[in-house]
């Protein structure tokens, strides 16, 4: 190449430096100074920032709301993983293995909620759960289960479980496609061999399909866990705002409340550090847990 070293480095700098400066200012700096803020008590105005050492962390461990928010987050993680994986697996197998004519239609429809705004999803489901007008309660009345009707999002016991269904509703499509991609890559000869050995469809699913799409299953579970821990607070904020009586607060929505409505920015940052640490630990543990030899036939 006819290019001097200097020219090469100049071009390299042109490509990398502006982007990296922006990335440092708007992503790296905020993350690190978030860690730093967690050692201060700060209501937002610059002259009242006070170094308090680990006081915020002590407060964190003594805050009664915190264990509840952690539990709520992991409740959502667990129910979403189970719900989404079972449904997405079922749909993916049905659409790929059973030669259904209208399969493309289902694929297009089931994916669509994945690209809807959380605001739209949240508001739609608030109506579905509406105690007087909502589909859920009128449906229950229609099949004669009046005693099961309740103000779903207004009840301390039922509000959190009620958030699971919209999350599953909105999440299935992506994982259905991921799993379908895995299944369609499995060579037909495995199924033929299994048939010759006398395996029925159910056994084929357990012995052939499932082990061979394990990588996709693993990725899906990790992805659901990460996106839930990093983003469950959005649907919470839209649908319940953490209420009633903190019964649906997750870590992120509690951070928002502490920092941006009560102006405890230092304490908010401490909650942020907790979210970061917990989600990193969870991802590492999960990766160890899900490690399973790749199957080769």
């Amino acid at each position: 190449m006819v290019q001097t070293k200097k020219q090469k480095y100049l071009f390299l700098a042109f490509c990398l430096v502006p982007t990296f400066i922006m990335f440092s200012i708007f992503t790296l700096y905020p993350l690190f100074s978030g860690l730093y803020y967690s050692f201060f008590e700060w209501s937002g105005t610059s002259n009242t920032r006070e170094f308090v050492g680990f006081d915020n962390y002590v407060k964190l461990f003594n805050d009664e709301v915190i264990p509840a928010t952690i539990w709520h987050d992991y409740f959502l993680v667990a129910t979403k993983v189970i719900g989404i994986m079972i449904m997405a697996l079922f749909i993916a197998v049905a659409l790929t293995q059973l030669k259904i004519k209208e399969a493309p239609f289902y694929r297009i429809v089931f994916f669509f909620p994945n690209i809807m705004s959380v605001v739209v999803i949240g508001i739609l489901w608030m109506f579905i759960y509406n105690p007087n007008l909502g589909l859920v309660n009128s449906g229950l009345e229609m099949i004669g289960l009046e005693e099961w009707t309740r103000p779903w999002l207004g009840s301390e016991t039922w509000a959190l479980p009620s958030l699971v269904l919209p999350s599953i509703w909105a999440g299935i499509g992506l994982f259905m496609l991921l799993l379908m991609g895995g299944i369609s890559n499995i060579s037909k000869s495995y199924y033929e061999a299994a048939k010759i050995d006398g395996a029925n469809e159910w056994q084929q699913f357990w012995k052939v399909t499932l082990p061979l799409i394990w990588p996709q299953i693993k990725i899906s579970i990790l992805y659901i866990v990460i996106t839930t821990l990093n983003g469950s607070f959005i649907i919470v904020q839209v649908m319940t705002g953490g209420g009633p009586n903190n019964s649906t607060h997750v870590m992120g929505s509690y951070l928002y409340q502490q920092a941006f409505t009560q102006y405890n920015f230092g304490y908010g940052a401490t909650i942020g550090v907790m979210i970061l640490v917990l989600s990193l630990i969870t991802v590492v543990l999960l990766q160890l847990l899900l490690r399973k030899e790749r199957v080769e036939y």
Binding site: P30, S33, G34, Y37, G44, I226, A269, I275, L276
Partner: peptide, 29 residues
């Protein structure tokens, strides 16, 4: 170039980090 792999990893790992923590300093920035 030297550090190309490291820079790539840095950008990619930013996809997994919860940005909630960064939003408070970003607000003041």
């Amino acid at each position: 170039f030297k550090g190309s792999q490291m820079l790539f990893t840095l950008y990619i790992s930013a996809m997994m980090i919860p940005m909630v923590l960064g939003w408070i300093p970003l607000f003041f920035l």
